[in-house]
Amino acid sequence: MSDKNKQRRGFREGLTALTGAMEMPMEAFSRNAKIELLSNREATVDGCRGVLEYSGEQIRLNIGHITVQFSGRNLELRSLNEHEAIITGFIVTIDFG
């Protein structure tokens, strides 16, 4: 394991310990993306870093260290800004890569 990865892992563990001690939710300090689903009709991706692929059947988003792929029918990017993307349509699968 490289020094950089060790440093990152240490930082994450420290952050987990800190949030546990302060009884605060992890997402308050984490930079991980948060995905909210409203049934299979709407997905709100908080922490979206960009759109990698976009079509009516498939939308792939960059959410930091991984990507998330929404597959389905009539998919639409209802809103996209610097931090958030809202996807509507008939979502069939969600894949992480």
Binding site: C48, Y54, L77, L80, E82, A85
Partner: peptide, 10 residues
């Protein structure tokens, strides 16, 4: 999105 422009209904 990076330029701070909100695009909607895409």
């Amino acid at each position: 999105a990076r330029g701070g422009i909100t695009v909607f209904g895409a």
